[in-house]
């Protein structure tokens, strides 16, 4: 399935993918991040039982230096 992550299209060779599995696939496990799916925040507690669908738009953000 194809997902758009942080503005870039990415293909995943699976038919089912949860947010938690996506985080693993992207090597982001353990990092402090927040995820928005199609404009709605996915709470961290819901990562494991939120199934992604082809075409989903995801934003994955973290904290960086800023003023």
């Amino acid at each position: 399935m194809q997902l758009t992550i942080n503005g870039k299209a990415r293909d995943f060779a699976v038919t089912q993918l949860t947010v938690a599995e996506l985080v693993l696939q992207l090597n982001l496990e353990g990092k402090r991040l927040a995820i928005e799916r199609n404009g709605e925040i996915v709470p961290r507690s819901q990562f494991a039982n939120t199934l992604l669908a082809a075409g989903d738009q995801l934003e994955i953000v973290g904290a960086v230096g800023g003023g």
Binding site: G7, K8, R10, K31, R32, E59, G62, A63, V64, G65
Partner: peptide
């Protein structure tokens, strides 16, 4: 203050992050 930005996808795992240097129990973000 901290900014919120897109996470680098594919960056090397274990790369330090700002929050590692500013532990949340020592500072108010």
């Amino acid at each position: 203050t901290v900014a919120i930005r897109r996470t680098n996808i594919g960056q090397t795992a274990g790369e330090p992050s700002l929050l590692d240097f500013l532990p949340p129990d020592q500072f108010t973000y």
